[in-house]
Every structure is written in structure tokens, then in C-alpha cells.
Amino acid sequence: MPLKQPRFLARQSYRRRRMADAARLLPLLGVFLVLLPILWRPAESAEADTAVGGVYLFTVWIVLIVAALFLSRLLSAPHTQDTSGDEEPR
């Protein structure tokens, strides 16, 4: 639709959009980190790796939770002016 949109955004709106991008990309990072142990081939290695693997997975988990907490705080903060027609909830 030929709605008039500004071509460049103010600093605040710009930040906000990049945070939305980060929120879209976070699950991809998560998938990568969760599937990473496949490359270690723990089934073929000789040493006992359940304990190490467990620590790794829980660490990844905590990192993802903290990242999500950070992003959700930023994205749900009330924003002052953004009339750009982006898919922001109002």
C-alpha cells in the first residue's frame, strides 16, 4: 500500500526495530546451540559425557532465558512515538 512512511527513523525507533530483529533471531541461535552436541558425537566417544552434556545444556538454557528476559523488557516498554506503521502492538 502506498502509505507514506519515513525512510529513516529516529534513534529510539531504530533501536526498537533492531531489538525486534533480535527477538526474531534468538530462536535460531537457540536451535543452533541445542543441536550443537550432535557434532560432538557423544555416542561414539569413549568417555562418560552425560554430566558434561547436562551442564552444557542447562547453561545454554539459562543464557537463552536471560536473553529472552532482556528482549521482552525492551520490547514491552511503552514507546513514545512510532508512527511508522511497523507491526508494533499498540
Binding site: 527477538a23 537457540g30 541445542v34 537463552l64
Partner: peptide
């Protein structure tokens, strides 16, 4: 550790809520 997949899957969906 395979049981963790059942909880990591939903985690990925929830952190990708956007």
C-alpha cells in the same frame, strides 16, 4: 539426557514468541 528435548523444544518456541 534425551528427556531434555521435550522441554528444549517449547523453550525455543517461547523465546521466539515475537
Amino acid at each position: 539426557l534425551e528427556y531434555l528435548t521435550i522441554y528444549l523444544g517449547p523453550t525455543l518456541v517461547l523465546i521466539g514468541w515475537w
